[in-house]
Structures are given as structure tokens and as C-alpha cells.
């Protein structure tokens, strides 16, 4: 089955394989650079997130893509949809802000990186949940700015389902990666 491919590989030589590996790595590197550059511009660690749960239905379903920004000079307002990550929790959560309290800090004696970085307390709730998120905060009483990844600004349905499918069926991921790698190696042009 792979005899033909192996033959072409042998014919093209070691240098060609090296060149293709280099090409592949440069594609990976530029993708990573674009992701991090976007993160710098929008000031969030992940400017694009995939919705993983149904707690914001019917607005956001599993697999929808959300585009985030986290402007340092803007406060969050009630009604904004935030993505937050509680220390110790492994996945970020997309929920709407229910309460904001500006100008209060919980812990004294901590040096803030920015004037507004730590003085806003937030409470969130999923549109599809009956009560607020206090139980999800793992002992915290309020969300603070440091827990917030970003504010949802844009929406694109369905596209993120690819990553969910790859997570749920790892075989798919390996098949896709292997196929791409093989194609990159044996491609002539």
C-alpha cells in the first residue's frame, strides 16, 4: 500500500524530506505567531475560544466560536459575556456578568499591575442556568479581574466543533495529523 509512497520518498532524497519538515515547521511557527500576536492586540491569553457546554443556550451552543478582547482600560459591565478561568479549574467558562462592584478589593497589600486590575468584583451566571455561579468559584466569593480571560465580542457558529470532535475522538486527530504529515512529505511541488 505504501510501497509507491516509499519509492517516491527514496527517489526525492533526504534533502527533500528535510526541506518539507522545515516547511511544515515554518507553517506551525507562523500559526503560533499569529495566535500570540492576536493575543497581544486583544490583551487576552486566548483571543478565540470554543464553547464547550450548553450553559449559555440558546445563545451559544457546543462548538460555536467566540472572539474575545480584554481591553485593560475598560471595566466590565453587567450584561457583558465573559470568559473566566478559576485557579485550579481546568477549563475556562463562558458566562454573563450578573453583578459588578467597582472600586473594592478583597485582599489588601497586593501590588496591582494596573490601577483597575484588581478593584472590580464580578458575579456571573449562565443564561441557561437558574442560579449564579457561586458554586463554580471553588471557594471564591467573587470573580476578580485577574480571573477574567476576556469579553465576548464576536460570534461564529459551528466552526469550533472540529476541535471538540478531535478531543472526543482522538483517532480522528491522529489520522488528520498523520495524513497531513504524509502529504507534506510526499508532495512534489
Amino acid at each position: 500500500m505504501f510501497a509507491d509512497e516509499l519509492k517516491t520518498l527514496r527517489r526525492l532524497g533526504f534533502r527533500h524530506v528535510l526541506l518539507q519538515v522545515l516547511n511544515f515547521m515554518s507553517v506551525l511557527a507562523s500559526g503560533f505567531m499569529m495566535w500570540k500576536g492576536l493575543g497581544l492586540v486583544t490583551n487576552t491569553e486566548s483571543p478565540i475560544v470554543v464553547v464547550l457546554s450548553g450553559s449559555m443556550e440558546p445563545a451559544f451552543h457546543r462548538g460555536d466560536l467566540l472572539f474575545l478582547t480584554n481591553p485593560l482600560d475598560q471595566r466590565y459591565q453587567a450584561g457583558d459575556i465573559t470568559v473566566y478561568k478559576i485557579p485550579g479549574a481546568d477549563i475556562p467558562i463562558v458566562h454573563r456578568v450578573l453583578e459588578t462592584h467597582d472600586g473594592v478589593t478583597i485582599k489588601k497589600g497586593r501590588i496591582a499591575a494596573s490601577r483597575i486590575a484588581h478593584d472590580q468584583l464580578l458575579l456571573t451566571k449562565g443564561d441557561n442556568n437558574y442560579i449564579d455561579d457561586l458554586e463554580l468559584y471553588q471557594g471564591l466569593e467573587w470573580l476578580e479581574r485577574q480571573h477574567i480571560v476576556g469579553k465576548v465580542r464576536g460570534f461564529l457558529p459551528y466552526v469550533g466543533y472540529v476541535t471538540i470532535a478531535m478531543n472526543d475522538f482522538p483517532q480522528l486527530k491522529y489520522a488528520l495529523l498523520g495524513g497531513l504529515g504524509l502529504l507534506a512529505l510526499v508532495q512534489r511541488e
Binding site: 459591565q77 453587567a78 450584561g79 456578568v97 450578573l98 453583578e99 459588578t100 462592584h101 467597582d102 472600586g103 473594592v104
Partner: peptide, 8 residues
């Protein structure tokens, strides 16, 4: 005290 609150 100047704490601004917004509650839904």
C-alpha cells in the same frame, strides 16, 4: 464610599 454597583 464611592463603590459603584450594578446588579441585574
Amino acid at each position: 464610599k464611592g463603590v459603584a454597583n450594578e446588579v441585574v
